[in-house]
Amino acid sequence: MAVTADKGRCLRCGGCVGVCPVAALRLTEHGIECSSKCTGCSACVQFCPVGALRLSGGKD
């Protein structure tokens, strides 16, 4: 699983990084990056204040 951010919407607040239980996300100057640690729990998607995150893909 992985999370992708809509770059047009994301305000780079970093809150999603703070709710990720497995530290899979990082806030970089380009936006949110998701590593293979993602379990697809969707906490970040539920958190996002502007609805910029989507879960995608199956297990990789």
Binding site: C13, G14, G15, V17, G18, V19, C20, P21, A23, R26, L27, A43, Q46, F47, C48, P49
Partner: peptide
Amino acid sequence: GVESMVARELGVNTSNKLVDICV
């Protein structure tokens, strides 16, 4: 700040439960 990756890299789990974070 809220990202809090440093603590997690050094062994303190600071991640927030959804219910404990105000959006």
